[in-house]
C-alpha cells in the first residue's frame, strides 16, 4: 500500500511539473513579445524603455535559466510578478481564492444532493413518463450555456423580482445566484453518471433478492444499489472540481465577482503570462491531488478493494 501511494504521489508530481513545463513552453512560443503587450499598442515606443522592462522582468535571460529559476520559485510558492499589476502573483491568487472557494463550495453543496436526488428518484419511480423526464433532465441542462443561464437568473431574480442583489458582493445573498448557476450543470454531471450506474445495478440479482426478502423499492435503491453505484460518482467529484474552476471563469464574469475565474479571464485578456501560468499550475495541482485522494479513498468505500489491496 505504501509503495502504491508513493508511486501515485510521484505520478501526480510529474503531472504538475509537466503542466508547468507545458505552459512555460507555450508562452515561450508566443509570437508576440510580452514586453510589447505590457506597454500596449503605442507608436514610437522608446527602445531603451523596452530593454529596461525586459531586464526588470528577467526576460533577457536565456529560456532554460528562466525556466529553472521560475520552477524553483514556484516550489517555494513564489510565482513571480504579474505583468499587468506588478504585484506578486502568489498573493493575488491567495486573495482571490476564498471567493472562488465559497462559490464552488456553494455550488457543490447544491449540486451533489440535487444530482443524487434526480438519479435516485429516476431509479425509484415506476412511472415511465417521470423516469424519462428525470432521465432527460441532465442532458437538457448540459445543453444550456452556463453564461446565459446566469444572465437569465440575474434578469429574473434581480431585475424582475428584486430578491437578490445584482452586484454579487461578498455575503450569502450575493452568492445564491452564482452558486445556483454553477450548480445546474454540475448536478447534471452527477445525476448522469449516477443514473447510468444505478440503472445497471437495479438489474442485478442482489436487488431482486433484497426485494424478495421484503425490502421496499426505496430501500432496495437506497441501501443496496446506491452503495454500489456511488463509486463512479465519487470519482467524478475530482473532475467536477476542475470543471467548477472552469465554470467560475464564466460565472464570475457574469456576476462581476472578483475570484480566480476573473483572474483567469483578465490574465488572458492582457496576456499576463506569469499570472495565467500560476493559475493553470495551481488548478492542475489541486485537481491532480483530489483525483489521487479519491483513488486512495476507494478501498474505504468498497470492501472488495480492501481485500485485494491486503
Amino acid at each position: 500500500m505504501t509503495r502504491f501511494v508513493a508511486r501515485r504521489l510521484t505520478q501526480a508530481a510529474a503531472v504538475v511539473l509537466a503542466a508547468y513545463t507545458l505552459t512555460f513552453a507555450a508562452f515561450y512560443l508566443l509570437p508576440a513579445d510580452p514586453v510589447r503587450i505590457m506597454i500596449g499598442p503605442e507608436n514610437g515606443v522608446d527602445e531603451a524603455r523596452v530593454a529596461a522592462l525586459r531586464a526588470e522582468y528577467g526576460l533577457d535571460r536565456p529560456a532554460i535559466e528562466r525556466y529553472l529559476d521560475g520552477l524553483l520559485g514556484a516550489l517555494h510558492g513564489d510565482f513571480g510578478t504579474s505583468f499587468q499589476t506588478g504585484r506578486g502573483v502568489g498573493s493575488t491568487i491567495a486573495e482571490a481564492a476564498p471567493r472562488t472557494l465559497a462559490l464552488a463550495g456553494g455550488a457543490l453543496l447544491l449540486a451533489i444532493p440535487l444530482g443524487f436526488l434526480i438519479a435516485w428518484w429516476a431509479a425509484h419511480t415506476r412511472r415511465v413518463w417521470l423516469r424519462r423526464l428525470l432521465g432527460a433532465l441532465p442532458g437538457l441542462s448540459l445543453s444550456v450555456p452556463t453564461f446565459w443561464l446566469g444572465l437569465v437568473l440575474l434578469q429574473t431574480f434581480s431585475f424582475g423580482l428584486p430578491l437578490f442583489p445584482a452586484r454579487a458582493e461578498d455575503g450569502p445573498a450575493g452568492l445564491v445566484l452564482p452558486a445556483v448557476t454553477l450548480a445546474v450543470p454540475s448536478s447534471a454531471f452527477v445525476a448522469q453518471v449516477l443514473l447510468e450506474r444505478l440503472t445497471v445495478e437495479m438489474r442485478q440479482p442482489y436487488v431482486d433478492t433484497a426485494r424478495a426478502k421484503g425490502a421496499s423499492r426505496a430501500r432496495a435503491v437506497t441501501a443496496h444499489a446506491l452503495r454500489n453505484a456511488a463509486m463512479p460518482a465519487l470519482t467524478m467529484t475530482a473532475l467536477l472540481v476542475g470543471w467548477l474552476v472552469s465554470g467560475s471563469v464564466v460565472v464570475e464574469t457574469v456576476f462581476a465577482r472578483n475570484g480566480l475565474g476573473r483572474l483567469v479571464e483578465s490574465a488572458v485578456t492582457t496576456r499576463d503570462l506569469p499570472m495565467l501560468q500560476a493559475l493553470v499550475v495551481v488548478t492542475t495541482a489541486v485537481v491532480t491531488l483530489l483525483t489521487l485522494a479519491v483513488d486512495l479513498a476507494h478501498p474505504l468505500v468498497d470492501p472488495r478493494l480492501r481485500e485485494r489491496a491486503a
Partner: peptide, 9 residues
Amino acid sequence: AVPSFLLIL
C-alpha cells in the same frame, strides 16, 4: 489533467 476550459484559454 489540466481543466479543459483553462487549456483552451
